[in-house]
Amino acid sequence: MKLTIIAGARPNFMKIAPIIAAVQEKRQDGYNISYRLVHTGQHYDKNMSQSFFEQLGIPEPDANLESGGGTQAEQTANIMVRFEKELTAHPCDLLLVVGDVTSTLACAIVAKKMKIKVAHVEAGIRSGDITMPEEINRLVTDAITDYFFTTSIIANTNLQKEGKIAEQILFVGNTMIDTLLKQRSRFTPPPIWERAGLQPRQYLVMTLHRPANVDEEDNLALLINEIMSNSQQLPVIFPVHPRTAKNLEKIAVAHPRLHLVEPLGYLEFNYLVENAKAVITDSGGITEETTVMGVPCMTLRDSTERPETCITGTNELLGTDPKALAPAMQKLFAGQWKKGAVPALWDGKTSERIVAHLTKIFAVKQQETTVV
């Protein structure tokens, strides 16, 4: 069985690393399974791309499409044109895409038009917010996917409501947690740890990149001021996404306890998260990591595609109104934040289950071909 595995943006890298390891292990056990890793080049900043490959032990990609930046339409088009040439030169039995980034959507469309089966890891998650580019990517990708690997029963239910065939929905867990659990012992303090004199549970971590929070300069300034006003003199560490950096320059935010740092590597960032008092974010993936590590998390969004992090985990959805931060912070500092638990099958063995399913699927395909 020949797989083509797609990676394009930072969230993808944590999800493909354990899958590649599981494929390699299965191959060593004598199974006829191989993969070709294609990096679309969607994230081209070293700290947001290359360092993740190095830290997570992901092999050098077999191809880099170097799709670069541009508008969403330009980037989607660049990836599709270049991936079509890649797939023509190197056909496969199945394309495996992960997550909900532009690369996920673009490569899935190309494969289906070339009559290649598609498997989607993290299928079925829904925010219900069609204004999010990621939600569009999820819906379109799942509309043409053949095999749905899901992170939760909620995702299964979403797919069933959309009319997907039950046999194609495979509840396997969360590959991002595979990476987290495997790498946890290797977490390492970033330079800001010593520079700011940080101590465990005596600082906050903040990440912001979604348009609703960072595109309006006045709202971004208000949001940051509200966080600083309610953080009880604790340092706030803010690894700045390139999208956010542009507007931060315009509003000239400055505060002695606010530490703006470059995007961090996986091991350094998660060291900060694991030891933080709490995390304030608008990311989806970080809410999964905080849930597993038992760290309080405040999500500055009106909806989430990962409701299990709120229902079971340590995450709370605050919305985008900066005024929601004060009561949440009071709850945190009063020691009243929920403890949370780890969702089902977030146990570090998801990738093994995915590869086991793939080998079964391929065995069935071989059998059908033989009968014909």
Rank of each mutant, 00 (worst) to 15 (best):
L181P: 00
K115R: 14
L358S: 09
T290K: 06
K164W: 06
I19H: 07
N12K: 05
E308P: 07
L345F: 12
K112A: 10
Q367V: 01
V371L: 15
V110N: 10
L325G: 04
P18G: 09
I165L: 13
T299I: 12
L222E: 14
P133W: 09
F171D: 08
E122K: 03
F148A: 08
V261G: 06
Q50I: 12
A328T: 03
T40N: 07
F269H: 02
E352I: 11
D29P: 04
N315S: 14
A166V: 11
L87K: 13
E316G: 03
Q28W: 06
D142C: 09
Q233Y: 07
P327D: 01
E226K: 13
L267D: 03
V372W: 14
G197L: 05
Y44M: 09
L87I: 13
Y266L: 02
E262I: 03
K46C: 07
T370K: 00
E308H: 05
K182Q: 12
V342H: 04
T299S: 08
T188S: 14
T370N: 02
E249V: 13
R353N: 01
I144Y: 05
D93L: 10
Q50W: 13
I169Q: 03
K331I: 06
I251D: 11
F362C: 03
T207L: 04
V295E: 06
R306S: 07
G313N: 11
M228Y: 08
F187W: 09
E217G: 06
N219I: 12
M132H: 04
L95T: 04
D178M: 03
I79L: 05
W193S: 06
I58D: 13
V342I: 15
T314M: 04
C297T: 03
A119L: 04
D129S: 13
D215S: 00
E262L: 07
K331T: 15
E60I: 14
Y271S: 01
L170P: 02
N247Y: 12
L248F: 11
F238R: 00
M114Y: 07
G8A: 04
N137T: 01
G30P: 02
R306F: 05
I237S: 00
T151G: 11
M80D: 06
T151K: 07
Y271D: 01
A119C: 04
I5N: 12
K349R: 06
Q183H: 06
L223I: 11
Q232P: 03
V121P: 03
G8F: 02
Q72V: 09
I169F: 01
H43M: 04
Q168W: 10
N32E: 15
E288D: 08
I79V: 02
G124P: 05
D321T: 04
P307F: 01
V261T: 15
K338Y: 06
L332I: 02
T131Q: 10
A119Y: 04
P91F: 10
G163N: 10
